[in-house]
Write a protein that binds this DNA or RNA. Structure first.
Lengths: 345, 345
DNA sequence: GTGAAAGCGCTAACAC
DNA sequence: GTGTTAGCGCTTTCAC
């Protein structure tokens, strides 16, 4: 180690060093840094020059302690291997950083304990706000209690008393399934995360709804839950294909699963959409460039991130409100090349 | 607003509240929280119960001010739309969070000013460490100066005096290009970020080297730089295809560009690999499931992230060392379906 | 215009 | 075992 004394490393310049070097008081330096406009031009210039020369960097922790703000917002996502969340992160990061905040990224991996631990950590760090997307939230009380200290926005996760960004995903799934039915499909599979995740539970109900509305029996073996990793779309589809009477079409709970399905189908020697049709959900970038291009239900990913971040920042500056806000964004079916009538029609 | 007085919101419980409620001193509470083992069982239990009941959350900013540690590490990436970086982030996040740190994600978008601003912000927050990957780093002095205060690890970016994680990417590109040459290609295009980014500059040199070694002329019009957004692979390839005598094969600087190339080629009605061969670089997940599967040079993405994070954490606890460490990880050509001999061979 | 001084919430000697 | 006290680096009244 370069420094024999552990404390020499980490010895940082403080406002006092600048003050004494400049021959002024620390309050003067502080005022210059925060350009309060109260300090004379000459002093200001002198202090600024010394700060520059000595490479002084203000300590945001000390500042934050006093101001009760950390200029940090946390973002808790369930799965980094799903491009949908990455595009969401990207748009949140953009807004947040433009407003001077830094993003703390927390990947819960759909693990409830990890999620809880992250919330605790963010609270200890006194994050100014937290955005959740598609989470478990088994214990909403934890979040509700934080609400008085930390601004919170939930995306695709309805929590009583918390502002949220939703989409018309219920209708979206119905549209997707209806498209399949209109093409002539009757044996339709559904692959999704599972009922534990609020965001997808809703989509399952929509799937059921669409079938029932069209007088099609809901077959339990066509519904596969439990996709908690990146490749689960692949495994869920394999299960579907191994069925004695496999479905002729699959509605996926998200595009990531749809592409997992692509792989399983390619492997089994079947052709999309000739042998089997696929409808995705989200409309991630890849949906457009895959082969065949994916028919999917689009969600306005970019707008969702933007709205979430803007709402959060607004909440940070205004404190908790009495009525909680809910923004609903539209979904839309986009027909591309992965859907066709079933064979023999 | 719920709270008429702005200060009531944000009023947080402190160690003092707990102490007075428990009828002990604040140091006792502090000791219980940090389970120093010095406090009697009965007192410990009593204090813990009160902390639980009152939902007290320690203030990490106050703690950090004293301990000179923020339990935060920053990660600066150039482009979130490239899956390579996302996989990298994922593996860094995993290691970092397992060690009790929180990840501050900074997307520079290959913008030099933004990168600089992020570094400043992370320094102000007193991040315990920073990981850079494939950055500009126009002014290494800034980083070098921070080195005494903040642990730093650079990935695919050599900076004098900074620990780094490299791969044999020079050899990797040579292997990729050699594969193309061995197949019979002589007209080979190269699409990459550009010479400003150190990580890719190196790959360009390797490309040149491979051609020269085989006695093939380096044609300037076959080398396209300037891919700074997600879709640039697409645009760069279009330029290549519009040439009067277009290349029969393309070596891409990364897989993201390779898939942009796929799109441009599909659009122009050509077939991969029949009409044109593509070699990627990175071996992102998608390379395996694309159609055709992408021949590419793999980098051990997951290991790179892991090694970077572990090295950083080690540096954090040990302080700067005299000799800087350099870890070199292997690349490997993976031949899949996107390469074939040129037409008419 | 500028300085002195009182904390922000916490940890860690140092006492007893 | 537990309490007292002195700061960590900064902002912000309140003086002058």
């Amino acid at each position: 180690m370069v420094f024999p004394n552990e404390n020499d490393y980490k010895k940082q310049l403080t406002i006092c060093d600048i003050a004494s070097k400049a021959g002024v008081s620390i309050s003067t330096v502080s005022r210059v840094i925060n350009d309060s406009g109260l300090i004379g031009k000459k002093t200001t210039l002198k202090v600024q020059k010394i700060i520059e020369e000595m490479c002084y960097i203000p300590n945001e922790m000390a500042r934050g302690l006093l101001r009760k703000a950390s200029k940090t917002v946390g973002l808790i996502v369930p799965d980094l291997s799903n491009p949908f969340f990455v595009e969401f992160i990207k748009s949140v990061e953009e807004v947040v950083s433009r407003n001077g905040y830094i993003l703390s990224l927390c990947n819960s991996n759909l693990n409830h304990d990890k999620e809880k631990q992250y919330i605790q950590q963010l609270a200890e760090k006194r994050a100014d706000g937290i955005i959740f997307i598609s989470t478990f939230v088994k214990n909403p009380e934890i979040i509700l209690r934080l609400r008085d200290q930390i601004a919170i926005v939930a995306v695709q996760t309805e929590i009583e008393g918390i502002d949220c960004i939703e989409t018309t995903d219920y209708l979206g799934i119905i549209e997707g399934v209806q498209h399949l039915i209109d093409l002539g499909h009757k044996k339709i599979g559904f692959i999704y995360w599972g009922p534990e995740v609020k965001a997808t539970q809703n989509r399952y109900k929509a799937f059921e709804h669409a079938l029932i509305k069209n007088g099609i029996e809901v077959k339990e073996e066509y519904i596969i839950a439990g996709g908690f990793t990146g490749e689960s779309g692949y495994f869920m589809t394999k299960k579907l294909l191994e069925l004695p009477d496999p479905p002729t079409a699959i509605q996926a709970g998200n595009d990531s699963f749809a592409f997992g399905a692509y792989l399983a189908i390619m492997e089994s020697g079947l052709k999309i959409p000739d042998d089997i049709s696929i409808v995705g959900f989200d409309n991630i970038m890849m949906a457009n460039i895959s082969n065949p291009p994916l028919t999917t239900v689009s969600q306005p990913i970019y707008t969702m991130g933007q709205e979430a971040a803007e709402l959060l920042i607004q909440n940070i500056s205004q404190g908790p409100k009495e009525v909680n806000k809910k923004i609903v964004l539209p979904t839309k079916l986009i027909v591309r090349g992965s859907t066709a009538p079933p064979k023999g029609e």
